[in-house]
């Protein structure tokens, strides 16, 4: 399922701390790397994805640009509270390509994933595609 679009599984982006109507947050779950969401200034930035069913997740793949430090958290409740950290990582800077990272996690069942972008290599960072593998 790593390569298929999350939105075909009825996942939703329920929160994004930046919004430019030309680059909506839904772009990160449409399965395409050509469309993206971009932050509009300052850190940290947050994105929360909600799943309709509880998800077992072993790998999270992210296509992005200029992200430096990223923390991923999960929630098992319906109300998107009580998040716990499942990974914290630093991406390498890329210039002529997107950052492509697969992050191994142990998530038995999650209702929400929260991505907290703590810092970037520029004022603005973009997320192109988020995929999960169970």
């Amino acid at each position: 399922m790593l390569d298929s679009a999350l939105n075909s599984y009825e996942a939703l982006v329920v929160l994004a701390t930046s919004s430019d109507e030309n680059y909506p947050a839904e772009n990160i779950i449409d399965g395409k790397t050509e469309t993206f969401w971009i932050s509009t200034g300052l850190f940290p930035q947050e994105l929360i994805i909600r799943f309709t069913d509880n998800m077992k997740i072993l790998t999270i793949s992210i296509h992005s640009y200029n992200i430096k430090r990223l923390r991923i958290e999960m929630s098992t409740s319906e109300d998107a509270d009580k998040f716990e950290t499942i990974a914290e990582t630093e991406f390498e800077q890329t210039e002529s390509s997107l950052q492509t990272n697969d992050i191994s996690v142990k998530v038995p069942n999650a209702t929400h994933l929260r991505f907290v972008i703590l810092s970037g290599y520029d004022h603005f960072v973009s997320v192109h595609k988020v995929g999960v593998q169970s």
Binding site: Y23, T33, E34, F36, I38, T40, G41, Y65, N66, E95, S96, S97, L98, D122, H123, F124, S126
Partner: peptide, 17 residues
């Protein structure tokens, strides 16, 4: 000036794709 940096950044990202 900050807005033009934003525009430049979007331009850079689109060139990478």
């Amino acid at each position: 000036m900050f807005h033009s940096i934003y525009q430049d950044q979007i331009h850079t990202i689109k060139n990478v794709l």
